[in-house]
Design a protein around this nucleic acid. Sequence first.
RNA 1: GCUGGCGUAGCUCAAUCGGCAGAGCAGCGGUUUUGUAAACCGCAGGUUGGGGGUUCGAUUCCUCUCGCCAGCUCCA
Length: 650
Amino acid sequence: MQVDSHGIDISFPGKSTRLLPVGTTAQEALRGEGKSKPTDIFAVKVDGIPKDLDTELKQNVTLEPIEFSSADGKEIYWHSSAHIMAQAVKEIFPSANLTIGPPIEEGFYYDFAFERPFTPEDLEKIQQRVCDIIKADLPIQRLEMSKDEAIRFFQKRGELYKVEILKQIEDQEVSLYRQGDFVDLCRGPHVGSTGKVRALKLLSSAGAYWRGDERNPMLQRIYGISFPTQSELDDHLARLEEIKRRDHRKLGKDLDLFSIQDEIGPGLILWHPKGALIRLLIENFWREQHLKHGYELVYSPHVARLDLWRTSGHVDYYQDNMFAPMTVEASEYQLKPMNCPFHIMVYKSHLRSYRELPIRYGELGTVYRYERSGVLHGLMRVRGFTQDDAHIFCRPDQIESEVRQVLHFTIFVLRRFGFSEFELYLSTRPPKAVGAQEKWDQATQALAAALKGGGFSYKVDPGEGVFYGPKIDLKIKDALGRAWQCSTIQIDFNNPERFGLTYIGDDGKAHQPIMIHRALLGSIERFFGILIEHFAGAFPTWLAPVQVKVLPITDQQVPYGRQVVEQFRTAGFRAEIDLRNEKVGLKIREAEKAKVPFMLVVGEREKEGEMVSVRKRGGTNLGALKIHEVLDLIRSDMPVEELTSSSLEE
RNA sequence: GCUGGCGUAGCUCAAUCGGCAGAGCAGCGGUUUUGUAAACCGCAGGUUGGGGGUUCGAUUCCUCUCGCCAGCUCCA
């Protein structure tokens, strides 16, 4: 490009354009631009590409500041933080080797090759050194050199992992970043100096395999987080505490919802009465809505002949996740890891006409999968779980409208449980897949069309489909903003083929139907775990195991209290009375701990006036009200029943 | 599965160097009849996850095993 001898034009999107001398740094160019304080700017986008602030500008460019609040900003900030942490580790443990240290969704980590795991005491020392490095405010400089030069450099330093990484880099020119004596191979960009990172905290350490492969050596990983201000760090740490407080394993025990016991086996859930009641309510809602939405419900057994699983392809494609087969009277049987073959066999039980399609079979089907012991986690990852499964058999031209209906239905159901933010992903053909490309294209397009037609925005996950077809996954965001994948909608043209499914078309000939697998909640166990954490155990009234707790102040009010309980029960609410000879303060404390939404205090005054004093969960005291007023109050706290997803469409 | 950490009463946690296993809460029995997040007194509660070993003696040290936790990998 021809460079104007007077200088270069720097344009600031949406703002001005300025003429500046060639070689002006991005930082200088940004001075006076925009409303953000210079200290809030950590890097810059030059023509849309993130760069260091001290990048010298040699031609006409557009310039945008990068602040911590942006995704790019966080990435850069945390990447620099990882370098600072690595510097601290190298200074304290020179024998530790550098490997990789990327930013992650929340914070960063750095993996070191070190002869032993880091102890909590080590982390304290490292933390201290990190603070020193930040205080020293070392400038962070970019060095550019040839790949060979860099290889020699790291070889000399004994950083053999860096050498290995370099050898796999295709570019001949690479960049390194230096702060003090610490030098790391890195594409950058970085913040200007170590002092820019103000509040950094090491969080934990654990082993991790080199390149994530368990055949490789185990490295020592340290996780950390950092923010431009201490108060942001404090908020983040408070959030981590909140996550711990909401842990469904802890709440499940405290609220007596479920247990997992050694004597029974890992990953196998015992639903206690209160948890079982919530499950019943979830399932009742689910069944009722499925019947309203054109599904037929079926039941299927927990085991089937191994041959069925051969036909379905599970023996070939899914064996690693299945329990070992068992032998019964010389035939082999398999505990089911999925429900689909059964639904297929229901379909196959007689000849089908095109007039019947789509056929939708739903089942809350309990499946068993072998999961490696290290991955089990409370209700979230178990070995026996119930899928809210359904299979839709339809003609290819019906895929789009079926999928669109499922999407609306899914969101309708999830909203009922208090979720209102969703992320959708369309997963396309994986490298290892069955079925003709043409079928894949057709199905993928149908999914995309359903998403677009329904007005859903989504992201594409290339190559993340299942081996038998593309899919849409839906993630929900919980009260803490964490995303959980529950719903999945998968197209399958493999099983109809394998099982030889047909329907008779209007041409009188046999055609092959398409199958759609879908689950809305995913697994009831996992969904329950998510609900527990989403509500922190304080379930909405319609799901609360106990909705109303009557608390008599003395024995004198017990008969009246019983009468009150009876009235609430008659009205269809789950009401209990606390008959213990205890002070009302204690009864309230325990009802609060049990997260009962409505506490009704009955003393002599209430008894006289045929009233109850209403305390809502959390401490709101509504004072004395008539029974019918309280009934209305609780009813207004329940979801409206008659809605279906179709009434929400259009 | 792998690496590391952990496993003591129903729950939360103590127990110095290897020397009689302890507290709070919960439970049970009493007293108390109570007004919006914990009344008081007493009682009981344990093969210290399980097996084996070292030792005069093991919660403590060694070893095997089961389970839990964190992470890696995988996933509903």
